[in-house]
Design a protein around this nucleic acid. Structure first.
Lengths: 231, 231
DNA sequence: AGATAAGTCTTACGCCGTAAGGCCGATCGG
DNA sequence: CCGATCGGCCTTACGGCGTAAGACTTATCT
């Protein structure tokens, strides 16, 4: 009380929560989230690891903060991409928002993992979801349908779906083992052959992430739209 | 060569890969995957941590193996649940399989996290997917639609979807903060109020996982069915 | 009986997150 | 102007992690 100047700071910090978190995101972007270590982060900032604790709650605080940075970035991207209200249907409006969110997530490949591994329902996350909810409501969906719809979208609402077990058939060993077990999964093999045939110039990694993401997204949005129309 | 008895074992092991992995799963089930550590696992088996390395590739091998155990369990459950072929549509047949898979995942809450965090495309996983592919093909879906369908299902095919940020509004602090930011997420708040009103006896955790899982699953399966019919 | 080799244990290293406390220097009350 | 105050940073240390290296133990085979 009686804080005349409005600041009680006795010394100007060389470090800042912002600076710490921004560098944390950079490290995770460049070298993966496992490289994001208190000592490494301190080194990168020209500081001892323990000094970080004056600006951040600890490792968990850094992870939370890094996600927060990404979500802010997501918010910006979504805001820029959002069409003025009242143009087109709710379905396409949501589609645009989510695809904008996805462009951010693609810049921070570690973020999905981290977000899934902890309870991320911060203000920035909630505001993004809130925006989608608003569009659904404006489109005439019932609260109940909105609720189920959010669950159906799942993490897709943030622009990502964690993918299990891409083929990854690079090295000879993998190839050999694959041909070993191929008889036990004939349908999968047939599918690979067929789809690879359609798109010859891709020996591996032949699944187009963007296409598959949009396919799944549209499947869900179409389903919701149909349920909304039926009601 | 010339191994007359068929076994070269010089000494009966007190440990076994199977015993190690089974205990690993039990630890993860009981105390979470962070409690699954080499020393802890060794202790539980009455053995030093380093002894485990003669039966398992290391920590990664244990994690992979534990997932493998779960996937085998999943395979059993799915096999038992699978209707004899030719009964009913492919859609419902797949639905039954996936819901059976889900019962297994609910017994091993750590498994989704671990499965997402590494490339799980082992034989048991592949066979499960292969079975779903077979049903889709029998139902007349094109290879292309099958492929997209797998992506759309995502990890739901294994019976789980990782959920982001359940409300979790237990303690007073959370409640206070929530009422603080409520004005910034009016639509979400309205939805919570409405849905909570429909189901009064649930102050929190009011999202029925099973219901939501099935809703999302049906949304995807319905979408695929419609696309298949249109072709 | 001696050799062999698998199974287990011992020791040790370099990481990790962080608790506890000391030092420095900018700011403020007098 | 000066000494108290306290925020910012550093030092040291602890316990836990995964695992490399190698010694010991013991069941089996020749």
């Amino acid at each position: 009380m009686g804080d005349t100047t409005g600041t009680t700071a006795r010394r100007r910090p060389g470090l800042t929560r912002e600076r710490v978190l921004r560098r944390a995101v950079e490290i995770a972007d460049q070298d993966g989230v496992t490289a994001l270590t208190m000592r490494r982060l301190g080194d990168d900032l020209g500081v001892e690891a323990m000094s970080l604790y004056h600006h951040v709650r600890g490792k968990d605080g850094i992870l939370d903060g890094a996600v927060e940075v990404v979500l802010d970035e997501l918010h910006d991207a979504v805001s820029r991409a959002a069409a003025p209200p009242g143009e087109g249907g709710w379905r396409d409006a949501i589609r645009v928002r989510i695809l904008a969110a996805r462009t951010v997530m693609l810049r921070h490949r570690w973020a999905p993992q981290v977000m899934e591994s902890r309870n991320v329902m911060t203000l920035s996350a909630a505001r993004h979801v809130d925006g989608v909810v608003a569009l659904m409501r404006a489109g005439g969906l019932s609260w109940d349908l909105v609720h189920h719809g959010l669950h159906a979208l799942g993490s897709r609402i943030y622009g990502f779906t964690l993918e299990l077990g891409e083929p990854e058939g690079g090295d000879d060993e993998t190839q050999a083992m694959l041909s070993q077990i191929a008889p036990q999964i004939p349908n999968l093999v047939a599918m690979f052959m067929e789809v690879a045939h359609d798109d010859p110039d891709s020996t591996l990694g032949w699944c187009d992430d963007q296409t598959e993401f949009e396919f799944g997204l549209d499947l869900v949005l179409d389903g919701l739209e149909r349920l909304a129309a039926k009601a």
